[in-house]
Amino acid sequence: MNSILSKHDLTTQELQILSSEMEKRKKSSGTAWLLWIFLGGVGAHRYYLGKTGTAILMTLTLGCLGIWTLIDLFLLSGMIRNTNAEIERQIIEEIRVFRNAQKNDKAL
């Protein structure tokens, strides 16, 4: 619901830009799951999703000897969803900043 509210004031052109940028920047669930399967013990899926701090901890502890890796089995889908929602929020913010900069240029 928050995503819909943040998009309500975007023009059709801005929504197209948002869609295009999301396709470029979003994280693939397939890639994240493959990283978890093959390199989950060293936190590769967390590096991929931008969770560098916890990824380093996983690397140093080998996923707490596999326990943390197993827990991520249940958390990974939510982490992917949250990461992509954050990427979308950042793009929307960039679009708004650009729109405001254009308005300021026209006002001058």
Rank of each mutant, 00 (worst) to 15 (best):
S6F: 00
K7L: 15
K7N: 09
K7D: 09
K7P: 00
K7G: 02
H8D: 05
D9W: 11
D9F: 14
L10N: 01
T11G: 10
T12F: 13
T12I: 08
E14Y: 00
Q16A: 14
Q16P: 00
S19Q: 09
S19G: 13
S20I: 02
E21Q: 01
E21P: 02
M22N: 07
M22S: 13
E23F: 11
K24D: 13
K24L: 11
K24F: 09
K24N: 03
R25D: 07
K26C: 03
K27G: 15
K27I: 03
S28R: 06
S28T: 13
S28C: 09
S29P: 03
T31C: 05
A32Y: 03
A32H: 10
A32M: 07
W33C: 00
W33N: 12
W33Q: 15
L34D: 13
L34F: 02
L35N: 03
L35P: 09
W36P: 00
W36Q: 14
F38Q: 13
L39I: 07
G40D: 10
G41Y: 04
V42R: 02
G43K: 00
G43R: 02
A44K: 04
A44L: 05
R46A: 08
Y48M: 00
Y48W: 01
L49R: 07
L49A: 04
G50Q: 04
G50Y: 01
K51M: 15
K51E: 11
T52F: 10
T52Q: 12
T52G: 07
G53N: 08
G53D: 13
T54E: 15
T54I: 13
T54M: 15
T54F: 03
T54Y: 00
A55I: 03
I56L: 10
L57I: 14
M58D: 01
T59R: 07
T59V: 12
T59Q: 01
L60M: 09
L60Y: 04
L60I: 14
L60Q: 06
T61L: 06
T61W: 10
T61N: 08
L62D: 04
L62S: 13
G63M: 01
G63R: 01
G63S: 07
C64T: 14
C64A: 09
L65K: 00
L65F: 04
L65A: 09
G66D: 01
W68S: 05
W68Y: 04
W68Q: 09
T69R: 08
T69P: 04
L70N: 06
L70I: 14
I71V: 14
D72L: 01
D72E: 03
D72Q: 10
D72R: 02
